[in-house]
Amino acid sequence: MTKLKLGLQLGYWGALCPGNNHTELAQAAEKLGFDSVWTAESWGNDCFTPLSWIGAQTSRIRLGTSVAQLSARTPTACAMATLALDALSGGRMILGLGVSGPQVVEGWYGQPYSKPVTRTREYVDIIRQVLAREAPVTSNGEFYPLPYEGPGSWGMGKPLKPITHPVRADVPIFIGAEGPKNVTQTAQIADGWLPLYYSPYRQDVYADQLVAAKEGFEISPTVMVYINDNLNDALYPVKAMLAFYVGGMGAAKRNFHKELMARMGFPDEADEIQRLFLEGKRDEGIAAVPDQFADEISLCGPLDRVKEKLKDWENSPVTSLLINGDENLMRNMAELVL
Rank of each mutant, 00 (worst) to 15 (best):
F143C: 01
F174G: 04
A135C: 03
G155S: 03
V137Y: 01
G64A: 14
P102D: 08
M156R: 14
L146P: 03
G150M: 04
P147R: 15
P112V: 02
T138V: 12
S59M: 05
A56C: 12
T65P: 09
Q185T: 14
S59G: 05
S100K: 00
L97F: 00
H165I: 12
G141A: 00
G155P: 05
T74G: 01
S71G: 03
G179W: 02
S114G: 11
P151I: 10
I173A: 02
E134S: 07
T74F: 00
L88W: 13
S71V: 04
G141L: 00
K115G: 08
V117E: 13
N140I: 07
P102V: 12
E149P: 02
A135E: 07
A84Q: 09
V105L: 12
A132E: 06
V130A: 02
Y123C: 02
G107D: 13
Q111V: 09
L97E: 04
F174S: 07
G96S: 01
S114I: 15
V99I: 13
V130R: 02
V130K: 00
K158R: 10
S139M: 04
Y148N: 08
G150T: 06
A81V: 11
A169F: 11
Y144P: 00
G90Q: 08
L70I: 14
P172T: 11
L88C: 07
G155W: 06
T82V: 09
G157Q: 01
T120D: 04
I173E: 01
Q188E: 09
G141P: 02
L88Q: 11
V137I: 05
L160R: 14
R133Q: 07
M156T: 15
V117Y: 04
V167M: 14
A72F: 08
F143M: 01
M80D: 09
A79G: 03
V104W: 13
R62V: 15
I173F: 05
Q188H: 06
G101T: 05
L97P: 02
A132K: 07
V67W: 02
A77C: 10
A177W: 03
L88M: 10
L160S: 12
A81I: 06
I173M: 04
T76M: 02
W108R: 03
V117H: 03
R133S: 04
A87Q: 12
Y148T: 15
V171M: 09
L160W: 12
G176H: 15
G155K: 07
P180S: 03
G96W: 01
L160H: 10
F143L: 00
M93V: 13
Q188L: 13
S89H: 06
F143N: 01
S114M: 08
R73Y: 15
G64D: 12
V99P: 13
